[in-house]
Design a binder for these strands. Structure first.
Length: 220
DNA sequence: CGGCCGATCCACT
DNA sequence: GTGGATCGGCCGA
């Protein structure tokens, strides 16, 4: 599998996102190599997109989104989960594609060792936080250039990997729909893309406002 | 399988 | 102080 050219990512994020389906993300970690063939992604279109972390401008957390394409933006959420994006161009537009799900095609035993709660191989990278765990990615990878051959984390052309994990094959039909967990004005945009019929695609969950535990101190 | 809910903590207002 | 680009356990159908 060949590395993808920088120009692949230096395009509007809505063009890049569907093209990432079938592409392979590989991490060479301490415990071994794990590679995931992407089956589901979401586009976040910079400061014009209310659903984007860059919507309110640049902050320390989202700074990588404003940088060059091909680097990864990794963020922490819900107090315990890491999620990974790939930054897309054009420059000056903080676009990024959230990697939501994929099929583990290399290093399944290693991924199983990390994903202790996973009960079946298809659940290993079914969901954005599961995917980062399976690959062994956390906040330490924020800003890494995934197109640099020296990086432990790399994005590779998946055109030699089929749905069975080995033989060349087609990627199948690309479908699209609303993004998962996005509320407010950005909710209606059909910027989630997935491969039809893939078992590793995560189930759709609409955004819900959640109650908070009563902020009770113990009674005096 | 689908719905509900708690966990857990950080970024931003 | 508020709520989140989520997950897994538990329950009922």
């Amino acid at each position: 599998m060949a590395p993808l050219p920088r120009a692949f990512f230096d395009r509007p994020v809505l063009e890049v996102a569907p093209d990432l389906l079938g592409v392979v993300v590989e991490h060479r970690g301490e415990e071994g190599v794990v590679a995931v063939r992407l089956t589901e992604v979401e586009a976040y279109d910079g400061e014009a997109d209310p659903g984007s972390h860059a919507f309110r401008g640049r902050t320390p957390r989202n700074a990588v989104m404003f940088g060059p394409p091909g680097h990864v933006y990794v963020y922490f959420t819900y107090g315990m989960h890491w999620c990974m994006n790939v930054v897309c161009g054009p420059e000056g537009r903080a676009g990024a594609v959230l990697l939501r799900a994929g099929q583990v095609v290399v290093g399944e035993p290693v991924a199983l060792g990390r994903r202790t709660t996973s009960k079946s191989p298809r659940d290993l990278a079914r969901g954005p936080a599961r995917l980062t765990v399976a690959l062994g990615i956390d906040g330490g990878y924020d800003g890494v250039d995934a197109l640099d051959p020296r990086s432990a984390l790399r994005i590779l052309s998946g055109d030699r990997v089929g749905p069975d994990g080995g033989a060349p094959g087609t990627n199948g039909t690309v479908r699209s729909g609303p993004r998962v967990g996005v509320s407010g004005d950005g909710a209606g945009r059909p910027w989630r893309f997935w491969l039809d019929g893939e078992p590793s695609v995560s189930s759709y969950r609409p955004a819900v406002a959640r109650r908070r535990a009563p902020s009770g101190r113990l009674s005096p």
